[in-house]
Structure formats: structure tokens, C-alpha cells
């Protein structure tokens, strides 16, 4: 190698290194920002509220949710979130945390479906019981492994349909979920994107919801997260608890299986 070429390469190398350093410090500061937020997650306020909503007798039947079967038997919440969605024989449906919770609020407490789902997410000044309850239920799986093998034929079918929807492109931006979430180590603006087709990527994403979103001042459930992704794709919003949102969750939870839950999270 000639001296000139070596010198040229050294300059390129230096240039690259300083670029990487500049970007590194941006990402370091973002990491510092997140670290400062992690200690004192407002989602903990919602966990408290969710616990009280779960245990207090309410609704036309004046019942608590303590007999609700989230998949591990009536009243058994520890680890339930990490094993959802799953097939429920009593409803003959694959249900996620939220559809099962709503089912319990209707069947055990006697609420009307329209009434409990009207406020499925909060707006400033309008709180959502579902957000609080899901935060509480999610917290009960903290430290446990996501385990959605999707062995039941209905679960397997939902996982395959979820995968189909994940790659389905449409709309004025040609988007699918895979555009942003199909590769490793990418960012949108400064937000790292998980490669949701791998266990590592899906694991990071799925294990940290429900999550408090500082930009929204609210905890988002997985339904809210996925429905908003579709809004960002400039599609119409799927209905709350619709099959395609549940199918996506089965596909993602199956991929993420084995990852330890760390919830509630706190995000941008």
C-alpha cells in the first residue's frame, strides 16, 4: 500500500470515527434522558389504580374482577399477561389481554360492552379504566418469560394471519409493519426500531408494554400501540379488539417468546 493511500484511508477512518462519535454522544444523551425518566415511572400510579379497580366490586352485578380467568384459572394473574393471547374454550376465540378483560367486565360485572370500551384509551382529563387495569395485569407478569407457543390450531392460524398482516402493504405511503420493523439496528428519527421478525427485536418491543408514553402523558396498551402504528401508516384505524390486532399480537408474542417481561415501561 502506498503512503498516500494509507494517509487517505487514515483520513477517511478519522472522519468516520468522529462522525460515529458525534452520533454516539447524541444517542448517549438520549440514553441518559431515558435513564433519568426510568426512576419514577408515572405508570406506577396507574398500577395502583388498576389494582383497586380489579379488587373493588363494581358494575350492575356488584362483582370484583377477582374471579376473572385470564387464562391460568379464575383469579390467577401472576404470569397471565406473558402467556396471552391464547385460545379460550369458553368463548371459542383467541383473545388478548384486553379482549379477555372486557369479556370479564361484561360477563362477571354485568357492564355493557359499549360502556366499558367507550373509553378504551385516555385523553387529557378523561381517564381510562382499561389502561389502569391492563397496567396492573401487565405488572403481574413482570420478571416472567413471554410464553406464547401458539400450539392450539386456532392460535397457530392467528399467528399466520398476523404474519400476513405484518407484511401487507397499502396506503399512500406504501407502508407495512415490516417497512419500519423488518430490519436490525434502524432508527426512525432518534427512535430505535425493533426488528420484530427476530426474537431479540420482538422481545424488546413486547416485553416493555404496557408503557407510559411521555409524549402522550398516558400508558399505552398493546392495542393502542398497534392501532396507532396503523394510523401512522395512514390507514384507517382498525376497531378496538378486532381480530387483525389480536392476530398481530399472536405473531409478535410467539416471536418474542422467551423474553423476560419488564413492564410497565416508559418511552418517548
Amino acid at each position: 500500500m502506498s503512503a498516500r493511500l494509507r494517509a487517505a484511508l487514515a483520513v477517511v477512518g478519522l472522519g468516520l470515527a468522529s462522525m460515529a462519535m458525534a452520533q454516539g454522544s447524541t444517542m448517549d444523551e438520549i440514553a441518559r434522558y431515558r435513564e433519568m425518566l426510568a426512576d419514577g415511572n408515572p405508570a406506577e400510579l396507574l398500577e395502583l389504580k388498576g389494582e383497586s379497580l380489579w379488587k373493588t366490586p363494581r358494575g350492575p352485578k356488584n362483582a370484583s374482577l377477582e374471579q376473572c380467568d385470564m387464562g391460568l384459572g379464575p383469579g390467577k394473574l401472576d404470569g397471565a399477561y406473558a402467556q396471552l393471547p391464547r385460545y379460550f374454550a369458553d368463548t371459542r376465540k383467541v383473545m388478548d389481554v384486553e379482549s379477555r378483560l372486557v369479556h370479564c367486565m361484561v360477563s362477571l360485572q354485568g357492564f355493557k360492552y359499549e360502556d366499558v370500551t367507550r373509553q378504551w384509551f385516555s385523553r387529557p382529563g378523561q381517564e381510562s379504566e382499561i389502561e389502569a387495569l391492563v397496567t396492573y395485569i401487565g405488572g403481574k407478569s413482570n420478571g416472567m418469560k413471554i410464553d406464547v407457543p401458539a400450539r392450539h390450531p386456532e392460535e397457530a392460524r392467528m399467528a399466520k394471519m398476523g404474519e400476513y398482516i405484518f407484511y401487507r402493504r397499502s396506503g399512500p405511503q406504501d407502508f407495512s409493519c415490516a417497512i419500519c420493523h423488518g430490519q436490525d439496528d434502524k432508527r426512525i428519527r432518534l427512535q430505535e426500531l425493533g426488528n420484530l421478525t427476530t426474537r431479540a427485536g420482538a422481545g424488546v418491543a413486547m416485553s416493555t408494554w404496557p408503557s407510559y408514553r411521555v409524549s402522550q402523558g398516558a400508558v399505552w396498551t398493546m392495542q393502542r400501540r398497534l392501532i396507532d402504528c396503523m394510523r401512522q401508516a395512514r390507514w384507517p384505524e382498525p376497531k378496538y379488539l378486532s381480530d387483525s390486532v389480536i392476530a398481530l399480537q399472536v405473531y409478535l408474542q410467539k416471536t418474542a417468546s422467551g423474553t423476560v417481561m419488564q413492564t410497565p415501561g416508559i418511552k418517548r
Binding site: 454522544s25 441518559r32 434522558y33 433519568m36 425518566l37 432518534l190 411521555v214 409524549s215 402523558g217 418517548r268
Partner: peptide
């Protein structure tokens, strides 16, 4: 002042 140089969202900026 203990704060990050960059905040990912202006709605919540930790400042000490």
C-alpha cells in the same frame, strides 16, 4: 444542573 443535553420529548424533560 443535572439534565440530559437532548430530550426526546419536550413534554417531559428531567431537570435536577
Amino acid at each position: 444542573i443535572t439534565a440530559p443535553d437532548i430530550a426526546e420529548n419536550g413534554a417531559v424533560v428531567p431537570v435536577g
